[in-house]
Computed example of a mutant assay.
Amino acid sequence: MTGNAWLQIGLFFTLLLVLVKPLGWYMARVYEGKPCGLDRALGPLERLIYRACGVKPEEEMDWKTYAKAMILFNLFGLLAVYALQRLQGFLPLNPIHLGAVSPESAFNTAVSFATNTNWQSYGGEATMSYLTQMAGLTVQNFLSAASGLAVLVALIRGIVRREQKTIGNFWTDTVRGVLYILLPLSLVLALALVSQGVVQTFSGPKTVPLLQSVTYQSPVIDAAGKPVL
């Protein structure tokens, strides 16, 4: 490994150790339903989501109901991402008119993002439309992560609440995880990316001149199309 790689690992673990206490304290207050500093700004939106979805946040679930809600929620997300990929050729926000993703790749990607694995076997903007990336993959980056956090919190409650039959409310835990944890963190990271000039646009791909020329040598191939070493 290079020195730069070791430096990055060191910075990562240093940042992790620094954030353990404050972020852990903050997350505990979020999942316990205690004031966390963002309630005044995000509380109305949280309550609106509950009303729109018919969720009773104070109603707790036993582990079977919690597990059923989690499985159905993620199954719906899987099917939604799969459908977006297969139908993207007929949907908007597709400036270069990409066609449907193959069934195998679409299913692999849908399962990957539903399980928060995010393993990608395709070429980014050469395969997925903007709508698929935003409404499918990016949304799942939040929902599947929030679902995973909710399951972890439910496990902790199950250990702590030895004499109780309930472990919280899956919908409440997921909503609060998205609103109070993942969205604020993503906002901070987004500002960092914008400050570095990362481009985000709805227009099609652009051809731009490079500041420094690059020489590329095409590989020599045989009659079968295989590279000759």
Rank of each mutant, 00 (worst) to 15 (best):
T2M: 00
G3H: 04
L16E: 02
V18G: 03
L19T: 10
V20S: 05
V20W: 06
P22N: 02
P22T: 03
G24T: 05
M27S: 11
V30R: 03
G33Q: 09
G37A: 02
D39R: 08
R40T: 11
R40M: 01
A41T: 10
L42I: 06
L45M: 14
R47L: 10
L48R: 15
E59R: 06
K64L: 08
Y66L: 01
I71K: 01
F73W: 12
L79N: 00
A83Y: 04
Q85I: 00
Q85C: 08
G89W: 05
G89P: 06
L93E: 01
N94C: 07
I96T: 13
S105N: 05
S105F: 00
F113W: 11
N118E: 15
N118C: 11
W119V: 04
G123V: 10
E125A: 15
A126S: 09
A126C: 02
A126M: 07
S129P: 00
F142Y: 15
S144K: 12
A146Q: 09
V151L: 15
L152P: 05
G158Y: 11
I159D: 11
R161S: 08
E163W: 04
T166V: 13
I167V: 13
G168R: 10
T172A: 13
R176C: 14
R176K: 15
G177P: 09
V178G: 11
V178T: 15
L179S: 11
L185D: 05
L185Q: 07
L189H: 07
S195Q: 06
Q200R: 04
G204Q: 12
K206C: 06
L210I: 14
Q212P: 00
S213V: 08
Y216K: 12
S218I: 02
P219R: 13
P219H: 10
V220Q: 13
I221K: 15
D222K: 10
A224P: 06
K226P: 04
V228K: 07
L229M: 09
